[in-house]
Design a protein around this nucleic acid. Structure first.
Lengths: 229, 229
DNA sequence: AAACAAAATACTGTATGCAGCATACTTGTG
DNA sequence: CACAAGTATGCTGCATACAGTATTTTGTTT
């Protein structure tokens, strides 16, 4: 019975790429991370090792290892003798993180203008166009996902691994909040306008302009999200 | 016998602060991190759980948890079935990290100009003056430590927790490199000049200037370190 | 009835044991 | 003598068992 659940976990994991096979550790980390992002585990909730382990079909040992991993990522907090708790982010925490994220994306944009190939920029343009389609249809979820893809793509095009990894950590902490904070129609239009500017600046390889747009875009994100906290 | 080593570990840990008592987990993490920074564990070295555990007087279970933590921090890499290895940083990795660090410190400087109190700036000035004393005496190690303290202080004065935490992660990855890369006299003078500018800009609360100095300072660090890799 | 103390329960932290896999060594063959 | 295959050793990955500590519940006293 326990093994059925384990099998499920591993099936969930993306098995493409012949280099590294999926490990149970990675599967648990990904699963718990999702549970936090999707709100199954709410901020402040205690993670009971016994129950959670049974739930996932895993013994406490690998589960605890995964929890330590998530503590290091900043998604959980650990009080000695009392186990792991889903981390609470105050409004200031979120604001602080968004400032840093804005700065990192600004840097990424600058580097992307320098290092991206024309073909890569065309790919981002395609993502953008598909996103605009979804906006026309007011289809929120695909829009949201494509939006995320575009930001990730710009990060990737910076060709700076350290930047990508740091950005991912911060991004993961806020994913839950952004998941909730779905903006109203008027602010949505503003975000779309930003994105039009973005792709334009990238295609023109105007590093200063792209950098500024990205940083400012993140400040606006704060305005959109601040009430949802 | 095993317990003697454990006790030692815990004694190493700073026990001030009545809130959180030192945990074995934190002690192991700190110890292994130090072993990497100080070169006791060289990049590419495999970490044998049995031996390392005996060495530290700890069983494999908490040791493995600590290793997972350090993997998440980016100091170790994990290949399934083959355990943990001290991560190798290529020259590009280091360069990329320094670019990001420079950007983060630039942001920190900008925020510090805004949020630091006069008293806090005076404290940085004192650190700076003491560092200059050490420079006069050509006393490298205290100079190095005070230098680090000043950069940390500026980060702290940004009053941005997310920024501090992200900076720490990246800083930890490079600590080993900086530990090696001790510059020659002519470049040392350049670094000192930068620091004079820094404290001046901070006291004047000139955010743009401080930000630029910090970012540029990091680019110069690359020049100093690049040959040592 | 309320508050405090004590005991029982339950959860975390650590050690150990076992199974599966990777690697190294040895032996046999071309 | 070299190379390949099979075997043996050793290490990682996971589960379970035990010890120590926090929490909750119950009983007693004011």
């Amino acid at each position: 019975m326990a093994y059925e659940a384990t099998a499920l976990l591993i099936d969930d994991f993306d098995s493409r790429g012949p280099i590294a096979r999926p490990t149970l550790h990675d599967a648990i980390v990904a699963r718990v991370r999702d549970m936090i992002i999707e709100g199954e585990l709410t901020p402040g909730a205690r993670l009971h090792e016994g129950n959670l382990g049974k739930m996932l079909g895993v013994s406490r040992t690998p589960l605890r290892e995964a929890l330590k991993f998530l503590v290091s990522e900043g998604l959980l907090e650990l009080s000695p003798g009392r186990g792991a708790v889903v981390r609470q982010f105050s409004a200031k925490d979120v604001h602080d993180s968004l400032i840093v994220l804005g700065n990192l994306e600004g840097l990424a944009g600058r580097l992307a203008c320098e290092h991206a190939t024309d073909a890569e920029i065309r790919e981002v343009r395609q993502l953008h166009d598909r996103m605009m389609d979804m906006y026309e249809k007011r289809d929120r979820l695909p829009y949201f996902k494509l939006n995320q893809s575009i930001h990730s793509a710009i990060l990737r095009l910076s060709k700076n691994e350290a930047l990508v990894s740091v950005h991912n950590v911060l991004q993961a902490r806020l994913k839950r909040i952004r998941y909730i904070g779905n903006e109203g129609p008027e602010k949505w239009a503003g975000a779309v306008a930003d994105h039009e500017d973005m792709i334009g600046a990238l295609e023109a390889r105007d590093a200063d302009r792209l950098s500024k747009i990205l940083t400012t875009h993140m400040e606006k994100t704060w305005e959109r999200v601040r009430n949802a906290i």
